[in-house]
């Protein structure tokens, strides 16, 4: 088999094979790049909660907490409650929590839902185990092969690596990160 044909086959087949991985890393990459601007894993909503009547820590039991959650339409969400301090009640929900200051009777409820797909993509991006580590290593090697083989897909003309467009675009793609690096150091 000619080298050029092997190059094209590798480029094509690895491209197909790792299409899914490209999506996972590209999408989660954008999501995690903006970690400071938003929460890429969860949709978190906050609601103010005010007790109708003040209550002391000693009067609070599981039934009372469940009746409170009933008022908040969260009865089925009860998981556990505890007192981080004498004046604070914290209720854990299956998807969130409620924290109330018993002295003021005021607090907040937080509901937490996973972002579909993004949560799972981000989880994988963070390298959850040995199998994934090896698979993503193979993916990285495949990306190198895809990138290098891509340079030699077109034989000649302006679009080839020897032409002004191919060589120019490749140079620009290398220069941009290099310039940014020099700007940051």
């Amino acid at each position: 088999m000619k080298l050029r044909k092997l190059n094209s086959i590798l480029h094509r087949d690895l491209g197909y094979l790792f299409f899914g991985m490209c999506l996972i890393y590209a999408i989660s990459g954008i999501a995690l790049n903006h970690l400071r601007d938003w929460n890429p894993n969860y949709v978190i909503k906050k609601f103010d909660v005010t007790l109708n009547e003040k209550i002391s820590r000693d009067e609070i039991n599981k039934d009372w907490v469940i009746s409170l959650l009933d008022d908040l339409d969260m009865k089925k969400e009860y998981k556990k409650h505890y007192f981080p301090s004498n004046s604070t009640l914290k209720v854990f929900l299956n998807h969130g929590n409620v924290e109330i200051n018993l002295e003021t009777g005021k607090g907040a409820m937080e509901t937490i839902r996973k972002r579909p797909l993004l949560n799972q993509f981000n989880y994988l991006h963070y390298n959850p185990g040995a199998l994934w580590k090896w698979f993503s290593d193979i993916f990285c090697v495949a990306l190198l092969i895809i990138a290098i083989s891509g340079l030699f897909i077109i034989r000649s003309g302006k679009n080839s690596i020897k032409g002004w467009k191919g060589a120019g675009y490749t140079a620009i793609g290398i220069l941009i990160p290099l310039i940014l690096f020099l700007m940051y150091i």
């Binding site: 929460n39 969860y42 978190i44 963070y126 959850p128």
Partner: peptide, 28 residues
């Protein structure tokens, strides 16, 4: 919430950090 890289345990709020073994903790 943001990174899932740490959790706090018990009333002591003792800090547990993610590692190579477990890279993030689930809010659940």
């Amino acid at each position: 919430r943001e990174s899932g890289k740490r959790l706090f345990l018990g009333e002591e709020s003792f800090k547990v950090l993610a590692s190579n073994k477990i890279p993030t903790f689930k809010v659940e």
